[in-house]
Design a protein around this nucleic acid. Sequence first.
DNA 1: ACCGATTGAATTTTT
DNA 2: TTCAATCGGT
Length: 744
Amino acid sequence: MTKSVLEGLNPSQKQAVLHLDGPVLVLAGAGSGKTRIITNRIAHLVNDRDVSPSNILAVTFTNKAAGEMKERVEGLVPGTSRKLWIGTFHSICLRILKREIDKLEGFRRDFVIYDEGDQIKLIKECIKSLGYNEKVMEPKFVRSQIDRAKNMAIHPGDEAPSIYQGRVARVFDLYQSELRRVNALDFGDLIAYVLRLFEGREDVREVYRNKFHFILIDEYQDTNKLQYNFIKLLTGERANVFAVGDDNQSIYGWRGADISNILNFPRDFENARVVKLEQNYRSTKIILDASNALISKNAHKHEKRLWTENPGGQKLKYYEASDERDEAHYICEQIRCEISKGGLSYGDFAVFYRTNNQSRMIEEELLRSGVPYTIVGAVGFYSRAEIKNVLAYLKVIANPLDDISLKRIINVPSRGLGKATVQSLEDIARSRVVSVFKAMDIAVDEGIVSKKAVNGLKNFKALLEGFIEYSSAHSVGDVLRRVLEKTGYLETLKGDEERLRNVGEMLNEAAEFSDNRGSGSVQDFLESVILTSDVDNLDEKKGTVALMTMHCAKGLEFPVVFIAGMEENLFPHIKSRENPKQLEEERRLFYVGLTRAKEKIFLTSTSSRRFYGEEKRSTPSRFVAEIPKELLVWESYNVPSPESSSSKGGRGREGSLKRKWTLPAVNRNGVGMRGANGKHSPKGVSLNGGGGLYVVGERVEHQAFGQGIVRNVEGDRDGRKVVIMFPGMGVKTIMETFVGLKKV
DNA sequence: ACCGATTGAATTTTT
DNA sequence: TTCAATCGGT
């Protein structure tokens, strides 16, 4: 037995690693060392049980996780990682399809993958050509419906109840055949077609069943029906499934993840063994207690209690800012403050938020104070128009049947091929059942379009054919460089620094891709671009503060974590308010955020936030109140030291900002007073202490409003009133003597 | 066919 | 607020 495989593992971990044949569900709480379990188990299989690495399939949630796992396995058993199959469901299925898809009728191996934007464009066309009104049937909505259906393994023709009938189903149907016509697959198809292949071709299925004797799946709580079917079909009788997950971290319900996969595992797989990993090695006791308390508010979960031997640590800090700028500034100051204490570097910090748009202000503030940061995800690099254009060129080069991409670039840069020309091309394509690419020839030969357009079409077609020819013998980097040269696209971007930079960045990436992988074809590059998420590129060793949504944060850990925007209607998000199930998912999301932290957590909210240009009042999230009060410290209003705000370039806007800072911003809660005199108070409590029954910061319970937190005490001793913030219900002012009010 | 200007819609979360 | 789509004039 290889010693290193079991070294330092606790009994449950050992049990999981050593398990023999048959299904296992490892319920691995946050920070319980699940990655280690998976990698060590792989090592154990290979080293001690003579399993060939090529007979092992490991499914991870992100490419990043796959890469890390590969590395760790390689460290344990050198030489194995190359033969292992490790990757996301999507990348694994892509790998299978690239070998097998021509066994499905009407598919070719040189297909491209459509991203969300492509999907929407195609769906829009389908809606139009079916004669539906796209104002009524929103393409975006239809897309999400189709996506959902796919994730639930529903086919267009299926007799499914509800929304999948009727017009959406008709669009779905047409969309699928259009995808096939243009030789493209969407995300869901990657998995769905593998399934179809396995179902329809026993010989193919047997090849993979015989190959993958052992299947390990990480983040099992976030698998959907489609993925479940894939696993089921692949394991067959053998059922050597090793599923690792934590139902408390299921946060992708909206994407079709089916929490019942993990909840029903013991029923789905006969004789399944369940191993619980309940010891947390990541966080301080206080962080763990807070997380446990929070998640206990959820009804649906496996019973599991995380514990730790780690020391207590520091209480969570909560700061209520006046607005986003204040919030961002607070975060900035805290980071600088922690750094100045020594021992930590910028890379040890992460700032999480619910929605991507929240990153703006925080980014600005970090920039202003010179704190290095990395934003993960934001407004996707790949969703910018200039990048999409460049990618569209590559897509057409890889797959000339791709009408959507072709139409996108036909007049970029402008070459006299406008709406009318495109319309005639589409007419030709439809009537003769050919691609738009082909239709260009026909239009030229038969002179169906204007003289000017004929010329433009000729040139454009020749240009593309030149690229295609060139790409057969050159790597993406070269191809892209040539595209930019010959089309003169860069010239049209002149003056727009940012766009130029983006395209330059894209070119770098393509060149790098070619270098790293010897050949690096256009198709390979496109696949990597579309299947690679932003988190995959996050480098913790870079030494920068990481900014990301809590969804992105899954699987990561940081010594110090900030969670911004702890406000009702933002987190929990307004759209998940009505549905208790969705509310529970929001709570799990918060749980994920909290459990990323090793040492310190800062929570922040604002009392007013701008939405689309409009300022809206906001109240603290109910989740804040769900953290036991003895684990939470209310931070007072925290005025920045004079140097820090004035030394940074005093450009126009900042003047007014500074004034904001010197105002006792939130007078009504009394906390602002202390801050205004420049003194930092570690606790924003007990300011009015001594006199009345209630003190600021204290937790109270109202017979009707439930639990709340005292924000201020007003009036004199004859008629003292308490101002209380009830999470989710707002701020109320109540007589101190009211009988329905008591301390908690 | 092209350009600029006006209007309107959008904010969950992502492989 | 910011972006994209649409409109109308040239």
